[in-house]
Design a protein around this nucleic acid. Structure first.
Lengths: 219, 219
DNA sequence: ATATGTTGAATGAATACTCATTCATTATTC
DNA sequence: GAATAATGAATGAGTATTCATTCAACATAT
């Protein structure tokens, strides 16, 4: 029996596979029914397994939710790092690639966004969520601010604050995500990207010009 | 007996007063315990009233939550409109006043933000929430885009798109709210406002200059 | 004025239901 | 035939909702 088939069989999947399967089911349920009405029964049904299965693999619902958030954050982080490493040596290219990433359909679809917002919605009352989100935000900001600093140095932009620019950029993507979630019919991927680019162009005009996107690629 | 005292008495408050009192208690509970673990018992206890009180005044929990969101949105909207009307005739002043509003302590504190995010977290699975949020966002965007259009006309900014600028601005405030919620210790009101101002300065340099905030107030 | 009846808000115990968790049993693999 | 994984019925804590009863305020009658 091939390994793939074997792992789809009941009762034979490895512990890690089952956990992933359950986390996946959890994400689907939260996206569809919302955090406050997904039950462990829903998750088990979505996974095609039995009632008690979550407690067997995660011990408690709280634990399942924590692990789900961690999985979501880790997944994003992997794509973030990969995007960064593939974008070449220029900070402006890297920054642009990161901004594009946030609006790729695989990251920015209502299902995924509903998940992020579901967890953010409970951040205040659940320190565990806050810790995970905070850790990641810290890293994101750090990287973006670093890129802004490099761009400011390259372009000799005297009046631009790297931290203000980084703050503006990261906030903008989160805010545009909210619009996508709340107003999907009037939301448009290109408009969102345009909003971000309009900012980059006006703050770093030497790097992000009007047509195409990069001005001094060969600097 | 004075009317105020009378309304604080048990069994004598008007229907409207009771509903407000219960909505208020609901907001406190959601901010403290999160959406998914506030019960009607919690709300009643917070209000200092009895178990069945919410169903008496709101018929169902769903209904209570809908009304709470509507109350939150209405309250914000009132302040928004008042801010706009008090900001004088210049669109740049009006835009600046609106941006400042979003970071006033009375609007932008973690308790209030937790509430907004709690509802946004369930937007995908609850059409009623989406409707209320969408309606308001539509209005907000419309007003901000109108102001941007006016500023662009005044300042003869050839390459600026009003809709991209409006999109960027409204998204930024929502995103900065998220940072406040997730990273309260590293978050700073002035830094947030700086991020927004840095954007305004770079897109509308003739209107928002470096020191103070308005350049051509007397244009 | 006092007593009596009426009203409607509020109570809080009871009800019906949901859901996380447990565990004895069953299936599968090596 | 262990050992491991999964099942799914049973449990019990928790929760929304209901409703018979209580109560304060007011109205009317005496």
């Amino acid at each position: 029996m091939p390994a793939a088939a074997k792992h789809n069989n009941p009762r034979t999947a490895s512990r890690a596979t089952r956990r992933l399967q359950l986390i996946d089911a959890t994400m689907k349920c939260i996206a569809r029914k919302g955090m406050s009405s997904t039950t462990l029964g829903d998750v088990a049904r979505e996974a095609g397994l039995s009632q008690g299965i979550v407690n067997l693999h995660f011990e408690s619902k709280d634990n399942l939710l924590n692990e789900t958030l961690r999985h979501l954050a880790d997944e994003y982080r992997r794509r973030f790092d990969k995007t960064l490493s593939r974008a070449g040596p220029h900070p402006a290219d890297q920054l642009h690639a990161l901004m594009e990433l946030d609006f790729k359909p695989s990251i920015c679809d209502r299902q995924k966004l509903a998940l992020w917002f579901a967890f953010w919605g409970e951040v205040k009352s659940r320190p565990a969520y806050r810790k995970i989100c905070d850790e990641f935000d810290q890293y994101y900001d750090e990287v973006v601010e670093g890129l802004c600093t490099a761009i400011i140095a390259e372009g000799e932009y005297p009046h631009v604050s790297a931290s203000a620019a980084a703050n503006a950029l990261t906030s903008m993507t989160n805010g545009l995500w909210l619009s996508c979630l709340v107003s999907p019919q009037s939301w448009d991927r290109r408009e969102a990207m345009d909003a971000v680019m309009s900012y980059l162009k006006s703050v770093f005009p030497k790097h992000f010009n009007q047509r195409g996107y990069r001005a001094n690629r060969t600097q």
